[in-house]
Design a protein around this nucleic acid. Sequence first.
RNA 1: GGACGGGUGGGUGAGUGGCUAAAACCAGCAGACUGUAAAUCUGCCGCUCCUUGCGGGCUACGGAGGUUCGAAUCCUCCCCCGUCCA
Length: 420
Amino acid sequence: MSEAGKKSAPQHPQKSVEEQLAYLRKGAAEIIREEDLKAKLELSAKTGNPLRVYLGVDPTAPDIHLGHTVVIRKLKHFQDMGHTAIFLIGDFSAMIGDPTGQSETRPPLTREQVDANAKTYLDQVFKILDRDKTEVRYNSEWLGKMSSYDVVRLCGHYRLARMLEREDFRSRLDNNLPISVHELLYPLLTALDAVNLKSDVELGATEQKFNILIHRDIQREYGLSPQVVFTLPILVGLDGVKKMSKSLGNYVGITESPQEMFGKLMSISDDLMWSYYELLTDFEERVIVRLKEEVRTGVLHPMDAKMQLAHTIIANFHGEEAARAARDEFQRVFRDRQAPEEAPSYRVPKRTWPYKLAWLLAESKLADSRAEAQRLIMQGGVEIDGHRVDDVKYEVDLSKPGASFLVRAGKKRFLRIIVE
RNA sequence: GGACGGGUGGGUGAGUGGCUAAAACCAGCAGACUGUAAAUCUGCCGCUCCUUGCGGGCUACGGAGGUUCGAAUCCUCCCCCGUCCA
C-alpha cells in the first residue's frame, strides 16, 4: 500500500495493457475472446474505469478446497491489476442446482443450508482476496424478486436445441438418465447475474464454459456488451485422476491444519505436482519450467520440489511460520519415523475391566466399526507407542487415570489416548 | 392416456428358487517396496459376538405384503426412472 496509491481516487493499474495481459494469462485454459479482453483493458486504461470481473460460486458445501482457489486466485490477479473483483454468491441459484458435470439431478439445497454455507465461504475467500476491495453480491438480490412472467420472458431468449448441445444433457439423454426441467433454467437465471452486474469478464472453471457462454449471449440480448469468458483448468485431486472434490474425498480444504495439508500435498504424484505449481502458486512460468528441468536432470530431488510446493501453498493460508513448522513435523514423523510432536487427543473414561484395543479404535473413530478395527489390527496397521500390535485380542489398560499412549492407525492417523 | 424396458453392496454391473454376504471390475483400506510419491505386488473390503473358526447371530438386492422347508430370484399392490406412441 504505497503513498502514491492512496492519492488518485480510482486506484488504477499502472501496468501496461500488455503487461497485464501477460500476468492474467498465466494458467488460463481459454479466453473467449482474447482480443476482446485486450480491447476492454485498453478502454479501461484510457477511461480510468476498472473492469468489472466476477466469479459466481454456489455455496453447495460448507467449505472450500484448493480446487476452488484456482479461480479465486485468478480473480485476485485481476484485483492486483486494479480491477474490480466481484465475488458473487449464488444463494438463489444454489437452490436450483447446477447441472454441470452432474450425471444425475442434484438435490436442491434448502435456504438454511445455503445461508450457513455462504457465511463460512466468505471468511475463507478473504484468505485470498482483499476484503476491502472486493464487491460481494448475492444473486437472490435480483433473482429472488422475479415474477413468473419475468422468468417466461427470460426463457424466450434461448432455444432448447442450443441448451441440449451441452455435454451433461446430451450424455444423460443418451443414457436414459433423468433431466429435470428446472435444470435447464439454471444457466438462464444465472445469466441475469452477468446482466445485473454489467460484468466485463466472468471467471470459471472449464466445466463452466457452457454456462458462461450462455451468460454472454443473454447479456447481448439485454443490450449489453458481452463479457469475456475466462476459464481455468480444473484442478485434479490428490488421486491424480478425478477432479478435486469434497465428495470424492480427494481434496485439501483451505481451513485444514498445516500438518494435514502438508501430508496430503506430499501424497500427490510427481507428475501432478507441476499442475499444482502452475495453478496454486504465483511462481512465474519460467521458474516452474526451470524447476521441472532440474528435477528431470536429477539436480533437484522430486521430493524436495514437492516440499517446496507444499510449503508455498500452506504459507498462503497459514503464514510462513506455520508452513515451516508443518514441514519440520513432516520430516520428523515420516522421514525420521518419530512420533509426531503432538497428535489430536482422545479422552476415555477410566475402565477397570479388560478393554479390547479394537473397541477403542472404533470408539475413538480411528476405525469405522469394530469389525474394521479388527481387520486393521490383523493387517498390521496399528501401533501403540511405536510398537506394532497385531493380536486381535489385545487389551488396553484403561484403569489408571492420567495414563496416556499414542495410537497409530494406518500410515497417517495418530491419536493420543488419555485415560480420565 | 397407452405399449414396453428397468430399479442389486460407495460406483459400474452379473445373478432368475437353495452351493449367494451376493461374480467381475472400479473406488476405498492395510501391508511390502519407497521419497508417507507414483507404479507394482499381497491381503482386506455389511454389522456384531466369542472359544478368531472355511464359528455363531443379525441386517441387506426400490417399498409393503404373500407363496415356499427355503426368495435378490415366483405372486400381489405401491413408489421411482427411462423409451416409444398420443
